[in-house]
Design a protein around this nucleic acid. Structure first.
Lengths: 110, 110
DNA sequence: ATAACATATGAATTATTGTTCATATGTTCA
DNA sequence: TGAACATATGAACAATAATTCATATGTTAT
C-alpha cells in the first residue's frame, strides 16, 4: 500500500474506529483499573465478599478513602453492595473483571 | 463462615493477594488504558501501523500531544516504533492489548 | 551546507484525581 | 431515646497527569 496517501489512510482508519463517545467511555472504564488502591480492593474481592472495614484493613488505608473508591467502583458497575446490619458487604459484579486483571498480569510479567 | 472474625478474614485475604509491588505495576499498566487519547491511538493501530502525523490527524490532536502519549505507550511496552526516512511508524507490541480492549468494550456495552 | 519536513522533548499551564478530615447518615442494642 | 458502631459524603488540599507552545533533533534532497 505504498502509494496510499496520508489522507486516504486517515479516512480509512477513521471509518473503522468505534465512535469517540464509546472510546471515551472505555477509557473511563479502564481508568478504574488504573489506581493501585482500587486494584488492591478488587483483588481482595476476588476471594470473597468483604465489609468496608475489612477492606480498609487489608489495603491499609482509611475507611473514608476506601468508601470513596468503592463508590467509584460502584459507578462503573464493578462491584455491588449488600447491607447486613451495620455493615456493607461488597462483592464483584461480574467475571470480566478477573479476566481483565489476569491479562494485565500476564502482560506485566512478560 | 459466619464465625470467622475480622482479624482472621483480613489475614486470610492478605495471604492470597499478589505483592503490593506487583499490584502497583498492574495499576500503572492499566493507567495507560485510562486516557481517551491513548485509547484512540491504540484503537487506530489495531488496523495497521501508522506514522505520527497520521495518528495526530486521526485523533485530532497536536503532533506534540501524540508524541508524548506514544512515549507513554512505549514505556509500558504497548507499542513499538520503526523509523523509515523522516517518519516514525508505530504499531502494537502484542495481542493482549486487543483482547483487553475487547473485554472492556463487552463490559461497557452490557 | 542549507532548506524543508517529521518527530521528540522540556517547561509551563491547566485539569483531573486521590486522600484526608470532619461530619452526616444509617443501624443495632440497651 | 441515646450511645456505640459502620459507612457515606462534602470540602479542602496535595499529588498527578494531559496538553500546548517553543524548540531541539533527526532525515532527506537540492
Amino acid at each position: 500500500m505504498a502509494h496510499e496517501d496520508h489522507k486516504d489512510i486517515v479516512a480509512k482508519i477513521k471509518a473503522t474506529m468505534p465512535s469517540a463517545d464509546t472510546l471515551f467511555d472505555l477509557a473511563d472504564f479502564f481508568k478504574v483499573f488504573g489506581d493501585s488502591t482500587r486494584i488492591r480492593i478488587m483483588c481482595a474481592l476476588f476471594e470473597q465478599e468483604l465489609s468496608v472495614c475489612c477492606i480498609a484493613d487489608i489495603v491499609g488505608m482509611e475507611q473514608s478513602t476506601v468508601s470513596h473508591q468503592l463508590r467509584v467502583l460502584r459507578q462503573e458497575n464493578l462491584v455491588k453492595v449488600r447491607r447486613e446490619g451495620k455493615q456493607s458487604y461488597y462483592s464483584l459484579e461480574d467475571e470480566h473483571i478477573q479476566k481483565i486483571f489476569e491479562m494485565g498480569l500476564e502482560h506485566i510479567l512478560e
